[in-house]
């Protein structure tokens, strides 16, 4: 791949998703675009870059930018965070809720494992104070391919063996003729998936009690990370909690979003911040 090709595609990624791709990781660009390259019968990424220049196509550009985002995820990849949300954060939010309805947003959910892990953990927490609460889980991602997998809830042999105990697999999945394992219908119905670009306004998603955004913003430039964090913070209800990874480095990035004193690893919006109305 020529340097100019790398720069043009990296620039495209920055404009569409805020991602800052490093030249030292150009192999990632080649790997993540290989399926599109094959489908379009391009021999090299140089051909793809040439086509983008010769025939500008915003939809194709968006598809390329989405394909360049990282997709590493696994079931219960952040088990401690899921436990903290189920045993502490959501019950606390429920205490202050007048409607008994709670909303959780898994931002940058990729192929859905994080959202389904939370749904499984909630289903398992039978004696929890959350019993009877109406909990809506929304997963968003920029990649329609990822969202298709997430919505179908069908995962390969390797995916279901990392992070899931065999009891959880048997209890929550059915084996398909293809050899894949599909998550059961009740759990599929418990999670909704929507396409959303984190650097764009998120008001159409509504407001949330909990936002999980882990290992999603760390590839973005500082400015784009702040922009995405602000959009998410705008959708967080006062007193709500946002869980991020330390690599996201959200300390002081958004005014009014501060580390939670009550819940380790979470940020919260000040309760007296009246900018957000109740959901």
């Amino acid at each position: 791949m020529q340097d100019t090709t790398f720069n043009e595609i990296a620039d495209l990624a920055l404009r569409h998703t805020g991602q800052a791709l490093k030249a030292s990781k150009s192999y990632l660009m080649e790997a993540r675009l290989s399926a599109i390259n094959r489908r379009e019968s391009f021999a090299t990424l140089d051909d793809l870059a040439h086509c983008l220049k010769a025939r500008p196509n915003p939809r194709f550009e968006a598809e390329i930018a989405a394909a360049l985002t990282g997709k590493l995820t696994r079931f219960f990849g952040d088990r401690e965070i899921i436990d903290r949300i189920v045993t502490h954060a959501l019950p606390e939010r429920l205490k202050n809720s007048t409607t008994g309805r709670l909303r959780v947003w898994c931002a940058g959910v990729s192929t859905g494992q994080e959202a389904y892990s939370l749904a499984m953990a909630l289903a398992d927490a039978k004696d929890s104070p959350l019993r009877g609460a109406e909990i809506e889980i929304i997963g968003t991602d920029i990649s329609t391919d990822c969202l298709e997998t997430a919505t179908h809830g069908s995962y390969g042999h390797f995916d279901v063996q990392k992070g899931l105990s065999i009891e959880r697999l048997l209890a929550n999945f059915s084996r398909q003729e293809t050899g894949n394992w599909q998550i059961n219908e009740d759990l599929r119905n418990a999670v909704g998936f929507r396409r959303h670009n984190l650097i764009e306004d998120a008001s159409s998603l509504g407001h949330f009690d909990i936002i999980i955004c882990r290992n999603v913003l760390s590839d973005m430039t500082k400015g784009m990370r702040a922009k995405a964090a602000k959009h998410m913070s705008d959708q967080l209800l006062p007193g709500g909690l946002m869980f991020s990874a330390t690599t996201e480095d959200l300390n002081g990035v958004v005014e009014g979003l501060n580390p939670s004193r009550a819940v380790r690893g979470a940020f919260t919006r000040n309760r007296n911040d009246g900018a957000v109305a109740a959901a």
């Binding site: 042999h157 063996q161 105990s165 065999i166 009891e167 697999l169 048997l170 059915s174 084996r175 050899g179």
Partner: peptide, 20 residues
């Protein structure tokens, strides 16, 4: 043996985990 029936039989017989 990667089908649900084999896995369930293994667990019933005292296996703790199952790798396919």
């Amino acid at each position: 043996e990667n089908d649900a029936e084999h896995i369930a039989e293994a667990i019933r017989s005292g296996a703790n985990e199952y790798i396919m």
